[in-house]
Design a protein around this nucleic acid. Structure first.
Lengths: 336, 336
DNA sequence: CTTAAGTACTGCAACGTTGTATAGTCCATC
DNA sequence: GATGGACTATACAACGTTGCAGTACTTAAG
């Protein structure tokens, strides 16, 4: 049985509360008393019982992060950054994996969590809009899409603008038949919709026609989906001269298909992705992409949560929408 | 303020304890009563308070997973699999990131965790051997290396044998100057030592001399380290005709250097990695590698923890060492 | 008709912590 | 020499839950 305040108090010859005060750094404790208590703490190896503390204070020091899947480099990176940012506030992060399943996401939002958490950072995949209203009062920060007037705070880049930047980069290189890989019909696939919108906007801007045959759907955003989509494009009557993939994994998959078929990149077909995952910096050819400011996304998400959790005046208030910058990164896959 | 047993009890017209009994599936509750209580629970949206439950029972239903970094695909994959395996036992997983810092790992082992957890799954990077003895009684499962007679349970593949398999694959292809990338001097870098040992053993077996100039150190196990190491090898007087990289990230980095310098793989230099991360299946060329049975590692780690957590006879006992299989996966980087 | 065993439910204490209220001491100020 | 304030320390209650002991009733066996 681990020692409690009680045991430390007995050993130091003070009251339980005095030990508690020492532990919590309360100012008005005589130096001599403090030293005696500290010694007792060391001697007994006392560690505060978090469960009890949480029971009293209602705070657990744990925030949950819900992502579709950790295996995806982009989410892994974001998760790592959020863990780091949370650490700076002495929070620990509990990771929920939704696998993009609507049911799991709904449970999350309904507050059917098994564990008590102070806040939730959530990157929804299957749910969108009003369905995301968190039932219990747990503060939530949404990640990764721009849902205007959504029910919760969220942090995101301007997906549409970023997609337009990517596409514009291709048009500026003189490409005329630019395909898009990653189109998704589901109404909840907001990210895909926004990137498609940006793509179309940039095409229109360049005076290029929107060709439905160039808008290739993908079940998921993985390499295999990208590889399959690219194969479909190459087998078509009139292949493209450039491809905008809605994320880097799709692009890497596409790249693989291109190279294994002997299509040279970027000479025959230029490829650009989205996310700037590390893989793209070392692939062959290296991958041009849109780089969201991921460290900032993580930091802002944690900060926003902290604000809601604080007792200050900012705790309440209307949902806020924070936009994070993105950059176009040009590498070999568009400019060999 | 969320409803408690008290509130449910009041609404259902029974005692608090009866509600508790219903929640915990106690047998001797009259069907009618049970129904009434259930209704009240639904109506109020009651969810048990984990902190209080833990305070009473000592169990939190949370296990911690400590990995060097989530950004690394191999760890991200393992983490994802462990979250899934834990879910099957209704556990949640709390992720700690050590960044491979000895101090952080030491804190972890000393039990200076911020959160109360039932068990710990730990993939150590900086610590090794006796330093890993867990101070408080929390059950721990070690991941990813084979430390004989270590202080805790662990699950690992046979690193040395696997490294030998990889190297043997290269010798069997007729390669004579086989380099190793990822050598680390630190005594705690057990993984690197074991893979080096396997590499040397396979060379000896093939009657090849061990050439120190071919054993290239790497600070970390990332793409950049692999790229740098490969550059060093190419600049040497006598470049190798094959390279065994201690993990896939190193190999992908090395691949990048090779291709950007126009060295053809595998004709001029064959490359093999270790881990079988998804990237290697879509890189150009695709990467030969050693594939540990990651799903099994995750499952076993969780099972082992469950055993220690159980009240059964298996709960105590000497540390166990479980070996997991690995396979050699031959792809284009060794057999174009 | 008594006893024992089983069923259905209740009340109290305790897990370890912290907020509030309180009380005593010491010192400076009016 | 009284008043007030800062400092130091303590006691008690409460957070929501569950284990244990106990009550009251029912049924079956002797």
């Amino acid at each position: 049985m681990p020692p409690g305040l009680k045991d430390v108090a007995a050993r130091a010859g003070v009251s339980i509360k005095t030990v508690s005060n020492v532990v919590n750094g309360y100012v008005h404790v005589a130096p001599a008393t403090r030293a005696r208590v500290q010694a007792a703490i060391e001697a007994l190896g006392y560690v505060p019982n978090i469960a009890a503390r949480q029971l009293r204070s209602g705070r657990s020091g744990v925030i949950a992060l819900a992502v579709p899947e950790l295996q995806s480099p982009y989410f892994a990176e974001i998760a790592g950054l959020i863990v780091q940012a949370a650490e700076r506030r002495s929070w620990t992060v509990l990771i929920d994996q939704t696998d993009g399943q609507a049911e799991r996401e709904r449970n999350l939002v309904a507050g059917l969590r098994r564990h008590a958490i102070d806040g939730l950072i959530f990157s929804p995949l299957a749910l969108a809009g009003e369905e995301l209203a968190l039932r219990d009062g747990t503060p939530m920060v949404l990640l990764g899409e721009r849902v205007w007037h959504g029910p919760a705070d969220h942090v995101a880049i301007d997906n549409t603008a970023a997609a337009a930047d990517a596409t514009r980069h291709l048009t500026s290189l003189g490409r005329r038949r630019i395909a898009a890989i990653g189109v998704q019909e589901r109404p909840s696939a907001v990210t895909a919709h926004q990137r498609l919108a940006g793509y179309r906007a940039a095409l229109a801007e360049a005076g290029l026609p929107a060709d439905p045959a160039l808008e290739i759907p993908a079940d998921g955003f993985h390499r295999a989906d990208g590889a399959a989509a690219m194969a479909r494009l190459l087998d078509a009557a009139e292949p493209p001269d450039a491809v905008f993939c809605f994320n880097d994994l799709l692009a890497l998959g596409a790249l693989r298909t291109l190279l294994s078929r002997g299509v040279s990149v970027p000479e025959d077909i230029a490829v650009i992705g989205f996310d700037d995952i590390e893989d793209g910096r070392f692939s062959t050819p290296t991958l041009s992409t849109i780089a969201p400011d991921a460290p900032r996304i993580a930091q802002l998400a944690v900060d926003l949560l902290a604000e809601r959790l604080g007792d200050g005046p900012a705790a309440a208030g209307a949902p806020r929408e924070l936009r994070v910058d993105h950059r176009l990164i040009v590498r070999e896959s568009t400019c060999g």
